[in-house]
Every structure is written in structure tokens, then in C-alpha cells.
Simulated assay, not measured.
Amino acid sequence: MAPSVWLITGASSGFGRIMAELVLANGDICIATSIDPPALADLVPKYDKEQLMLLETDVTKIQDIALAFKTAEQTYGHIDVVVNNAGVVIAAEVEGTPDVRARHMFEVNFWGSANVTREAIRFFREVNGPRRGGKLLQMTSMLAIAAWPGLSYYSVEGLTKSLVEELDPAWNIQVMMIEPGLMRTPILDSLQASRIDVHPAYVGGAADRTRLAMQPKQASGDPQKAMGFVYNVARMDKLPLHLPVGPDAIEHFKRTIDDLTKAFDEWESLASLTVFTD
């Protein structure tokens, strides 16, 4: 089989770096984009330029994203898989999160993801065409399923779910939301380095305990195993829409299902009466 072409955002560290290494080790082609391409320089001697391309790409800049996809088209003619992975995180209470920090995270996690999503769908539809189609892997979090205190601004999945409903099945585009639990990746180190002090009203509260739980050595999730699992699922003919990764993610799924079932059981009869009767 011909190698698949993967475009990965946020490829310089963490999940993105691991996925890039898996793609390359399995003989596929990797377009590794990030705001820090030199962080991937050690891969250059191991793979020829036909298999590995490093691009400086800031997902908050639409022109950078357009250039990355255009370069991929000119070099390889198509992209099979886009891993929409670039992201940042902060931990703080809703009241204690500075606007400038929250807005920056939304620029990367929401608008950056949305920008890559739009370009990936357009590319799959108009460049690849329905015969090839494409796979869009959205890196989200278990927090999109059940929230954690102190991480209120972190995960946004609504856009992806709406997108899936909008896609024409004839385009042959598949979308998978990857929802990991707590993993021991460099993002936890960056979280400690950019720590926000506890809001005075919440000292000793649930969000403060989240800060303690997110110490790098506290995380039990192995990102190497996690991305190996994701890579294998991504190569399947049919992708699931939701992919929980890690036992804590599974627990979050179960808890959310229980909460929704309880709400359904308690309120179905009365909620169903809120319609016009004429």
C-alpha cells in the first residue's frame, strides 16, 4: 500500500510529537507543523525529505494554516489524515482566570482548532475529492464529556459535533474526537510554569485540588501508549466519533451517562408537556 500523508499541528511536543514519530516509524509521510520546528530537528537525519516535512505554523494565523495545506498539496498532491492537536491549558477558577489568559487559550484551542478544521474539510472535499476523502482527528479532552473544577475554559467540542451533522456523506470525510484523560505530557510542565494563584474565595476548594492532581508525576496516563492506541484506531476503515483514552476518561463517560439518564428519568414526563396544544 502507498504511504498515507498525515498533517499534524502542535507536533513539536507531547501528543503531537509522539504521533509524528509513530507515523514516520510506520512508513507514512508526516507534515509536522508547529510554532517551534527546531524542536523536531533531531528527526531530520532519520528520515528523507520525501517522508518528513517541518513547517512553522501558528494555528491562530489563518494565513499560516492556508500555507501549510497549500504546501502539502504542492508537495504530495493530497492529505489523508489531519491531526488537529495544537493546544494550551491553564488551571484556575472561573472567577480567578485573567481574561487575557482565557482569551489566549481560546485563540489557540477554539479558534485555532476551528481554523484548521475549516481548511481540512475544504481540502478533503475540493482537493482530495470524494474518492479519497479524508480523516480529521480532533484532539479534545475527557473534560468535554464531564468537567473538572479549575479547567472550565479548556475544552470545546460543540463545533465538531455540529460540523459532523453538516457534512455531506458523499464527501467521504470522517471525524474522530480524541478524548484523553490525564496524561504525563509536557503540557503539565507548562501548566506549573504558568501557574495562576488560587482565587482567595476558593482556597482549599475543588479547583485547588485539581492543581495538585495535575502535577506531572501524579498523572498515570502513558502518552506513548495512548497515541499508539489512537494511531491504530485512526487506520481503521470506519472511525468512531468519540474515542475515550485512559481509564479516567472512561470513568468520566460513565458518570456523564449516569447524570444524563437521571435527568431523563426525572424530567421526561414534564419536559414533554412544554409544547403548543392547539
Rank of each mutant, 00 (worst) to 15 (best):
A2Y: 00
W6S: 07
G10M: 00
S13M: 11
A20M: 13
E21Y: 04
A25R: 11
N26R: 13
I29K: 08
A32E: 01
T33A: 02
I35W: 05
D36P: 01
D36Y: 02
P37D: 04
A39M: 01
D42Q: 09
V44K: 15
P45K: 10
K46A: 08
K49Q: 13
Q51N: 15
L52H: 03
L54Y: 02
L55I: 15
E56M: 08
E56C: 04
K61C: 04
I62D: 05
F69R: 09
A72W: 00
A72M: 08
T75K: 15
H78R: 13
N84H: 00
G87C: 02
G87T: 03
V88W: 01
A91N: 12
A91M: 07
A91D: 03
E93D: 13
E93F: 00
G96N: 08
D99T: 14
F106Q: 14
F106T: 13
E107R: 14
V108Q: 10
F110T: 14
W111G: 02
N115S: 12
V116W: 04
V116R: 03
V116T: 10
F123H: 09
R125F: 03
R125E: 08
E126W: 04
E126Y: 02
N128I: 09
G133K: 11
Q138V: 13
L143H: 06
I145F: 03
W148N: 11
G150Q: 01
Y154V: 11
V156S: 09
L159E: 12
K161D: 10
S162G: 12
V164F: 05
V164K: 15
L167I: 12
L167T: 03
P169H: 04
W171E: 14
I173E: 00
Q174K: 12
M176W: 00
I178F: 05
L182R: 07
T185L: 02
P186T: 10
S190E: 12
L191F: 05
L191C: 04
D197E: 15
P200Q: 11
A201G: 01
Y202R: 13
T210S: 14
T210Q: 05
A213N: 03
P216Y: 05
A219S: 11
M227H: 06
F229H: 13
R235L: 14
M236K: 13
P240A: 10
L241W: 03
L241R: 02
H242E: 09
P244H: 01
I250F: 07
E251C: 00
T256P: 05
I257H: 04
T261S: 09
K262Y: 01
A263W: 04
A263M: 13
F264G: 01
D265N: 15
D265Q: 14
E266H: 10
W267C: 01
A271Q: 13
L273K: 15
V275P: 00
